[in-house]
Write a protein that binds this DNA or RNA. Structure first.
Lengths: 195, 195
DNA sequence: CCGTTATTTACCGTAACGCGAAAAAGTCAG
DNA sequence: CTGACTTTTTCGCGTTACGGTAAATAACGG
């Protein structure tokens, strides 16, 4: 159960409703941990059953009542305890890499499109992180409490830049294959095989 | 179902038994996709049910008979079809990042230990990839069929180097926090004890 | 006889993911 | 007023994945 702990981590900032948590998992912490609202609500009720969070109903007029979840002392302790265990590096599990692994058995055109979409995605992310950095850490430094968030941003920046650069390299390499394939007489016709 | 496709991707190289696949998932493709032997055998029988792979029993003396799985034309087509679909970038889902997110609510000592273990891990990986590179691609170039594998190695090298550097930075930052905490009279002192 | 390597399979549990849907009460555009 | 969208929570079904424990078979090495 790591999603539960990610939720606890979010709730260390401030009490939140499931709805707000879902939005947080779409933005800050969601940059490295995806979860939709269903997962979050389900996990929240499990956490409540365990006594790690406590829900207070807040009556609202004009909107449905909301359940504001607060970290309990038990939840806080559970988070600390979980965080003290050694972690194991997660594997990437990226479809794209599997496709590259079997490059000679798949079509390169859609793969190149995919890589170009990735490139854009990682560039966007990079720009977003840069904006976040100058906004939240204009001096480039952080208090002790915010050091973790700064480190996460640095990690994100490194990662996005590195992957974006790699995407460019990969696109070039695939383009080279395509042009090679168009030039070399490989197919059944000896020449003049216009595809 | 992406594990299934990863298996199909492995089988494009050559027919293999579940046992060999498990070893492959411990080495080359396993660098970015973990799967133990149980998952693989289960997935293999599912793939066989779908007609994507075909198992031939090879009688052995001295060892249990083995089932050599071969990609069927349907399996090959399924792989191509799957590889032509656009992929979505996978999220990292790393416990360590969650812990950094909640840095002010967890103990830093075990986190630092964790980071140091990571640093070592990523350095090992980097060295391993370098060895693989010079062994499999001494010229630094690859044929069209091997371009994907070369790209994967480059990706791995970039990634490991980048993460290792980041680990160093993170360790330094955490050490700075520790020393700050040891110097400033926060604990038993009366001021600024926001708990 | 025990442990190891090679090889496959079984059962059980649960975490995670995803789809599709719905309720209930407001706001805002057409 | 209708229809669409926001806010907020919940339910139910199914699949994929992951994890542990373990067993059966058969050789070889000590």
């Amino acid at each position: 159960m790591a999603l539960g702990d990610a939720i606890l981590a979010c709730l260390t900032e401030r009490p939140m409703t499931g709805y707000e948590l879902a939005k947080t998992f779409d933005a800050s912490i969601g940059f490295f941990w995806k979860a939709d609202h269903q997962q979050i609500y389900r996990e929240l009720s499990r956490l409540r059953d365990r006594g790690h969070v406590q829900g207070r109903e807040v009556v609202q007029s004009g909107k449905p009542n909301k359940l504001v979840y607060t970290l309990t002392p038990e939840g806080r302790a559970a988070l600390r305890h979980w965080a003290a265990r050694p972690s194991s590096p997660a594997s990437m599990k990226d479809d794209l890499l599997v496709r590259l692994y079997a490059l000679d058995s798949v079509d390169i055109e859609p793969l190149r499109d995919d890589l170009m979409a990735r490139l854009e995605h990682h560039r966007d992310r990079f720009a977003r992180y840069e904006r976040l950095l100058t906004k939240r850490f204009p001096q480039g430094t952080a208090s002790a409490a915010d050091t973790g968030k700064l480190l996460l941003l640095h990690m994100g920046l490194r990662h996005e830049r590195s992957v974006a650069e790699w995407c460019e390299e990969a696109i070039d390499a695939l383009s080279a294959i395509s042009s090679r394939a168009n030039v070399l007489p490989l197919a059944d016709g000896q020449h003049d095989s216009n595809g």
